[in-house]
């Protein structure tokens, strides 16, 4: 069997926005030969029950992800900056609305 004949097409990651104003959320993936079909296949697969008002499809190979094994080191710089959180600051006794 030739490769072309049995190709299940490139992989696309699918993101759906459920209602206006909220972020698109990853819901899964589809195989499709081009972006138009990726969009249509995603609609048929992931929004059969009014789950969304907008869909993004992204070629899976275009996604760059951080490596879980390095995550300690990678995210370390944010761990020692407690002054970035509002709870770090001491407010004068009795002050309101702040």
């Amino acid at each position: 069997m030739s490769n072309v004949k049995d190709s299940q097409w490139p992989l696309w990651e699918v993101f759906v926005q459920a209602s206006p104003g909220i972020p698109h959320k990853h819901v899964g993936s589809v195989h499709a030969p081009d972006k138009q079909m990726a969009l249509q296949n995603s609609r048929d697969l992931y929004t059969r029950r009014s789950e969304g008002i907008s869909i993004w499809v992204v070629p899976a190979e275009a996604i760059v992800a951080s490596n879980p094994e390095d995550s300690g080191m990678f995210f370390e710089p944010s761990n020692d900056k407690v002054y970035r959180h509002p709870t770090f600051y001491v407010m004068p006794e009795g002050s309101k609305n702040i």
Partner: peptide, 15 residues
């Protein structure tokens, strides 16, 4: 269904 997969692949390549 093989011809459908082939045709769609060919169309995508042409695009």
């Amino acid at each position: 269904g093989a011809w459908v997969r082939e045709a769609a692949t060919a169309y995508a390549a042409k695009q």
